[in-house]
Amino acid sequence: MTAPLLTVENLRVSFPTHSGRVEVVKGLSFTLGRERLGIVGESGSGKSMTGRSILKLIRKPGLVTADKLNFEGIDILDQNEKQMRAIRGARISMVMQDPKFSLNPVMTVGEQIAEALVTHQKLPRRDVQARIIEMLHAVRINDPERVARLYPHEVSGGMGQRIMIAMMLIPEPELLIADEPTSALDVSVQAQVLDIIDELVRNKGMGLILISHDLNLVSRYCDRILVMNAGHVVEECAAGQLANAQHPYTRGLLAAMPVINETRDELPVLDRTQWAGT
């Protein structure tokens, strides 16, 4: 593994409620090289908040603290908004969950992709156009000139998500955070979208954080896996070693997965008393 791209130590995210601050991420630590890291966990386990705090997108009154949140020698928590804008999109980018909501309904696809590019690079218009077409090709859109003129409501979910990927990768960031990129898609296009992310990330030698609740999917597309539960990392292992997971939560999750041709009459349910209090 090369020098780490991202170092996170003791990351904490909290929000105020009437009964005091509630921590949703409680002391998360990991390092990431130019590799593919999967973060798995159930709803509310803090995985999305982890992704957003790396981009410093947690809005007040949310509070992010960490002993270290270092991206390529830059202390993220130390950056002001202006410095963060130079990092967002250009160096760290994020693919969001549902293209129905995450694409601007009144801008054409081409305009939105162009915006991601020209925010960070001053280019002549013709070059911008060429880059957009090339990028749409890269996400396997067959007729990029036509698609660039469409509005988001005129494209399908799978195509919308490929457009999202094109938009987030066009400034050539070093780290891509994919926050449940396929949860809103049909199973049939999930693999297609993930294959595209995988191919582009490998080709460009980027780092990837794939946030998902799907253990199988993450173990297929990632090198390393963090399992989160209630704001803590409960398990960290190489993707291939998932079967040997130690923590009762992970073991419970694995046991609850049905397998084709199995003979169990009843799938076990998570017994949360085993690790409560961790």
Binding site: S102, P105, M168, P171
Partner: peptide, 26 residues
């Protein structure tokens, strides 16, 4: 509070543009 406004912020778009182009136009 819409997701596409967050998308614009993720792209590194200045806040003024986020507000007038992405939130105001719709």
């Amino acid at each position: 509070s819409q997701e596409f406004v967050t998308t614009a912020r993720v792209k590194g778009v200045p806040e003024r543009v986020v507000i007038w182009r992405h939130a105001f136009n719709p």
